[in-house]
Design a protein around this nucleic acid. Structure first.
Lengths: 153, 153
DNA sequence: GGGGTTAATTTAGTATGCGAATGATTAACT
DNA sequence: AGTTAATCATTCGCATACTAAATTAACCCC
């Protein structure tokens, strides 16, 4: 029994809803795979960056991932506890802490990194190259638009 | 200092990363506006559906929004506490609980619903109609692809 | 070189979200 | 009718993520 006011955008047609659902689909897919290795998805993000570039500071990690500092602190603390990383106070600027992968953390790359390839491959199945490009292009433009919007307010 | 293995997909080029960042941009934009009205974003989702169709069961709300039952329970409990909804045990099937907006909950529609319009408008600024359609089309296809993938595993 | 500002990290508090397990009720099947 | 299965809501424990505020360290400017 719908109300007469059909003017309200149906949730499932809005850009925000689409972004939300798509993000959750990726998260679920990835989490399902990582659970087998006892790696929470929140740690995966940091591992992935560190595999490419070891020794980053917490700030640099946060910035690259678009994740707030406090969230990073909690994730990295757990990762150190689990022996995936070492946190080393920077000697030339003692405000900073550099994050280095342990052997265990490095070794996970071979095991885990195929997942992202798998998932991206599956996700883009039967979607044209042009559409994939459009998706990325629109994603980025939306982010820029909303950032500009926030900045203005 | 990048490692020589450039084979790993850069995070910011993967579909998953794009979906994640875009979702967060929407969330931030919406949250900033809702905070002024003391409405947590987790309650907004339910309000939005109820404005269109009042009296749905918790299960129906969860399904429409793609949110798990336990999350819905917590959100609706807070909403009842805040006087936005009434939870009424269904008489013909006493397992169900129907959710009805209070006057206060209904009244919020006029105040809050413009936001989603604003944000969607801003988000889609300077993006062609075709690209918007492609974004939605790809979003949905990705979800279907990943669901099929999960089901297979 | 002191005082104020900025930067990086941390703590505390709260909200959101999931999976697994449980309770309560109804439906389905002998 | 009585047992079993399915459905809806809930509780619990944990992970993720934010804001606000505190802490420590570095920088800058007079």
């Amino acid at each position: 029994m719908l109300k007469q006011t059909e003017l309200i955008i149906k949730p499932d047609e809005s850009l925000g809803f689409n972004a939300r659902m798509t993000h959750r689909a990726f998260t679920r897919a990835l989490q399902a795979r990582l659970t087998k290795h006892n790696i929470p998805i929140g740690q995966w993000y940091y591992l992935r960056v560190l595999w490419r570039e070891d020794g980053l500071t917490q700030k640099a990690l946060s910035d690259q991932l678009g994740i707030m500092g406090p969230t990073t602190v909690v994730a990295l603390r757990a990762m150190e506890r689990d022996g995936l990383i070492k946190r080393v106070r920077n000697e030339s600027d003692r405000r900073k802490i550099n994050i280095y992968l342990s052997e265990k953390g490095k070794a996970l790359e071979t095991e885990l990194s195929p997942y992202i390839e798998d998932i991206n491959l599956q996700a883009s199945d039967e979607i044209s190259e042009e559409d994939i490009e459009a998706f990325k292009r629109v994603s980025e433009k939306i982010r820029l638009n909303l950032e500009a919007f926030e900045a203005a307010a």
